[in-house]
Computed example of a mutant assay.
Amino acid sequence: MSRKRQMCCMVAVICLGTTLMTFPFSLLSWYQSRIVRRSRVNETKAQHEQALQQLSASTSTTKPAKPCRDNFKETFEREKRYMCCGMRGGLGNFMFAYASVYGMATKANKSVVIQKNNLLLKYFRIKAKVVNDLCVCQTAKFVHEGPPGQFNKDFLNLTEKINYRPFRYFQSWMYFRHVTDDIRKQFSFKDELREKAVSILKGSREAFVKQESGRGHDNVTTVGVHVRRGDIAKYRKFIEYGYTVAPPQYFSKAMTYYRNKYNTTLFLVCSDDIAWCKENINGSDVMFMEDNSFEVDLAVLTQCNHSIMSVGTFGWWASFLAGGETIYYKHPARDGSRFRQIFSKDYSDFFYPDWIGME
């Protein structure tokens, strides 16, 4: 190679190196991000194709359906007088679903069917046909609710001689208003849990009386306070959906109502955020229930004379089962949100009659 060509090659190499050294970092990052995105797109496509293949295989007519081995299936299909109750969510959701389906079933002279691992059976005295597997309900007719917090009278007219499977939440007291005494009896706690709640309440009253220099504890009016925060105060998806949390001034106003009405009050506070409660709910007549399981909290709240609820179905059922006066937070859903749309215009389908709304 001639000396002139060698010099040209050296100049080219130097220019290339200089170009790479001075290449904008942002542009390099852009190329790298494109490579990563393409890789992710290809990976997503592959996963999607795999999912479609699995779905196709699972729905193929050549693959027989898994047989239902519950012995009750034959009776279920022959008698056609049942309503299946499938549930989702937390304990309060389970209680609404069962109570509402039970209300529908009694109107139609049918019996409720639930699965043996149902959470309600662990704590309450439920009157339902218990099966090993809800596969017995495969042939039942689905009836889908509309907005969960709005009552639909049509669900109290499911009188055809067929089996039904009402689906989802049904969070309105109006579905079971004709069987409220029955529902209260079925949601009476089993002995061990009830006795534990009674013991906690008794111990709290006695400690309070001692603190208050010997006032007779029989004259103490107990008020259960349920404060829900946790997920709905912490996670963006709940906030964007429209959940609200009751502010400190709401609890202060509600407690003042009871303090003015009764000579001696004792507020028992149950919450998924006791630290927040200790900072925002004050008074020498306040006790915080700590280190209890959720079912014990619920049982304690139901043993109180009266109730203050914040938002959610757990506090709703605590108040309903306590049976005294109830104060509720008037704005459980943010106006204009998707969550607000599940309730009736004035929330009357959800909140029980004669309960007192405050803000």
Results as ranks from 00 to 15, higher is better:
M1S: 14
R3V: 11
Q6N: 14
Q6S: 14
M7D: 11
M7Y: 12
M10V: 15
V13S: 09
I14Q: 09
L16V: 15
L20I: 13
F25M: 09
S26R: 14
S26V: 11
L27R: 11
S33L: 13
V36D: 12
S39N: 11
N42K: 09
Q47D: 09
Q47T: 08
Q53W: 08
A57N: 12
A57T: 12
T59M: 12
S60N: 12
T62E: 14
K63E: 15
A65F: 09
P67E: 12
C68V: 15
C68T: 04
R69K: 15
R69D: 10
D70A: 04
T75G: 01
R78C: 03
R78N: 07
E79L: 12
C84P: 06
C85M: 06
G86I: 12
R88Y: 09
M95T: 12
M95F: 06
F96I: 03
Y102E: 12
G103R: 00
A105K: 04
T106Q: 15
T106S: 13
A108N: 07
A108T: 06
N109E: 11
V113F: 06
V113H: 06
Q115H: 02
L119H: 06
L119Y: 00
K122F: 05
F124P: 08
I126D: 03
K127R: 13
A128E: 07
N132L: 07
D133S: 11
C135L: 02
C135N: 04
C135R: 01
Q138I: 05
K141Q: 14
F142N: 10
F142Y: 10
E145F: 03
G146M: 00
P147S: 06
P148I: 08
G149S: 05
Q150G: 00
F151Q: 04
F151G: 05
K153G: 03
D154M: 01
T159M: 06
T159E: 04
E160M: 07
Y164G: 02
R165H: 07
R165K: 10
Y169I: 00
H178P: 01
V179L: 00
T180G: 01
T180S: 12
T180W: 02
K185S: 10
F187G: 07
E192P: 05
I200E: 08
K202F: 13
G203E: 14
R205F: 00
K210S: 13
K210T: 14
S213E: 11
G214L: 05
G216T: 03
N219R: 10
T221A: 07
V225A: 03
R228W: 02
K234F: 00
Y235K: 11
Y235G: 00
R236K: 11
I239T: 06
G242A: 02
G242Y: 04
V245Q: 01
P247Q: 02
Y258E: 04
R259A: 04
Y262N: 03
T264K: 08
T265M: 03
L268I: 15
L268Q: 05
S271H: 01
D272I: 06
D272Q: 06
C277E: 02
K278V: 05
E279M: 11
N282R: 11
F288Y: 15
N292G: 07
F294N: 14
H306M: 04
V311W: 02
G312P: 01
W316E: 04
F320M: 15
F320A: 14
E325T: 08
T326N: 15
K330G: 13
A333K: 10
R334L: 11
S337A: 10
R340P: 06
K345H: 09
W355K: 01
W355E: 07
I356Y: 08
I356S: 03
G357Q: 12
